[in-house]
């Protein structure tokens, strides 16, 4: 089963410069494990040591942010496109303070 995966500029060092790669899996967690087999280290940039989706990235299945689809449990089917983008965020506030206030 082939899933088309779009890789952002900042992570292309893991894919030999490739902008799009293919992977396999029935959900996002399986897909990322599969991709990490081919492109070691990629998964570690997307998943925290605690096993959650990193707040610095957005991952989409087709047009939907996986945070609305069960995060790592998001179902994926043959022919789906998974897009990875760097989350664009920041601001004047310190990160720790912002995380506390925003509850994440």
């Amino acid at each position: 089963m082939a899933i088309d995966v779009r890789i952002p500029t900042i992570l292309r060092s893991y894919t030999g410069g490739a902008k799009a790669v293919t992977g396999a899996g029935d959900n996002l967690s399986e897909l990322l494990a599969n991709l990490d087999g081919t492109y070691p280290g990629l998964r570690g940039r997307l998943i925290t040591p605690e096993g959650g989706l990193h707040r610095f990235v957005n991952i989409y299945v087709n047009d939907e942010d996986v945070r609305f689809l069960g995060s790592l449990d998001a179902k994926i089917s043959d022919g789906d496109t998974v897009t990875i983008l760097p989350a664009v965020a920041g601001g004047a506030f310190g990160l720790a303070a912002a995380a506390a206030v925003l509850g994440r």
């Binding site: 952002p8 900042i10 989350a87 664009v88 920041g90 601001g91 506030f93 310190g94």
Partner: peptide
């Protein structure tokens, strides 16, 4: 195209990247 500029405003402080800005900066170009 690519994002050549990513901008945001600070509304009460100097226009210098905060540690939050630096942590999130994910577009190397």
């Amino acid at each position: 195209e690519e994002p050549v500029v990513i901008y945001h405003s600070h509304t009460a402080t100097e226009p210098y990247p905060s540690r939050t800005d630096i942590s999130y900066a994910g577009e190397p170009n």
